[in-house]
Amino acid sequence: MKKILILLIIMYPTISFSTENNKINKITKNLRCLICQGQSIYDSQSEFANSLKKIVEDKINENMTEKQIYKFLTDKYGEWILYEPKFNKNTYFLWLFPLAIFIFGGILIFKKKT
């Protein structure tokens, strides 16, 4: 069982949970509509969102990768536009805190067991 857990922890950063085939939908679902209240670009019908959808479509036609498109947009709008925060010095704590809780809890339980 410990092996399973270790395996999980190794898999942790690499897994992506997405069922989306369409690339435009996938990208626009991961973008925040900055002028709306908590909607993604994909879901929003605002002017801003509609223009951004066109931009993403253009960029895909220009053969930009998903990463390049995110880079293009964060250069203009900051990381606030991404729904999935990047893993960097600002977000180490965000990504690792739940993991730390999990390990800590595991230690508590197995110490009690033996």
Binding site: I4, L5, L8, M11, Y12, I15, S16, F17, S18, K29, N30, R32, S40, G78, E79, W80, I81, L82, Y83, E84, P85, N90, T91, L94, W95, P98, F102
Partner: peptide, 26 residues
């Protein structure tokens, strides 16, 4: 993060889906 570092980020569905779905299996 906004108060401490003046950086604004969004934490949305991809974050939660990723972190929860992995541990859903065990």
């Amino acid at each position: 993060l906004e108060v401490i570092n003046d950086t604004k980020i969004s934490v949305g569905p991809p974050f939660f889906n990723k972190l929860i779905s992995i541990f859903l299996i065990p």
